[in-house]
Amino acid sequence: MIGRNGKNPQAEGRIPLPQASREDGLGPDPAIVVAEGICKSYPSIRALSPLSFNILPGEKVALVGPSGSGKTTLLYLLAGILQPDEGVLSIDGRPMTSVRPGRELSQLVGLVHQQYDLVPHLSVLHNVLAGRLGQWGLLRSVISLVWPRDRQMAEEALAQMGIGDKVNERTSHLSGGELQRVAIARLMMQSSRIILADEPVSSLDPARAEGLLGLLTDLVRGSDGNDGKTLIASMHSPYLIRKYFSRVIGLREGVLQFDMPSSEMTDEVSDRLYDLEQPEPALWGVGN
């Protein structure tokens, strides 16, 4: 069973969890994500075999694994877009099944998609403000289409992303790099406790990838002494994982391969995880 100390006995000894003890001696922080034997199958394929893990507040977790390994499925389970077939997934001490979609869910988890998924016809301001929709009532959202509420908050978020001058620009006129920043600004407005990112850098060149991860990790770190947020992102590059994440979870065909500090994510570990020829290592040795 999962104890209050937030450790997963199944992986005990294998997962060097970050030292999360409070200095006040009240014991470690309770985990913000607790997965107990969650699994998910699609009609023709088992996407996730029973999987258990804990994630502590403030952790930056990278999910790695080849295509079809279950990373996206896991992110969607965490985002509440999918429900596990079996097992219990709790966030902030509450089973996901008891979290109401809409406002409640949006304050717990926010998801950045690969393509940012902004509305191209709206202004940048409105796209950023869309992150507030969970907090807004009906009337306020109608009024905001014409006279935007929380404008200052959105402007600050955009300024923090370095694109404060684009507030009134039409979103379709922005470059790829700017779109990312708008998407993250929207996530800032949502101010969820957990930030999920589905392959956030897969379509970016190396410099932009680092820029985006820098922004995301800044956002997670939190400002003025807040204890910050938690980041969970699907990634591929061992270098970026070592540089920007604190922990890495490896998946292959829906099965947990490893769960360790990101500093141990060497290129060799990665190669082994992604190795297509893994089942038949002898094939290449013979002949010639």
């Binding site: 985002a79 877009i81 979609p101 809409g102 406002r103 869910l105 949006s106 304050q107 926010g110 998801l111 998609h113 940012y116 998924d117 902004l118 509305v119 191209p120 869309a130 992150g131 929709l133 969970g134 907090q135 807004w136 009906l138 959202s141 929207r186 996530l187 949502q190």
Partner: peptide, 14 residues
């Protein structure tokens, strides 16, 4: 984009 809006807590009308 609609899915992203739903994920940020928007109601169907929003």
């Amino acid at each position: 984009p609609l899915r992203a809006l739903r994920a940020s807590g928007a109601s169907p009308f929003q």
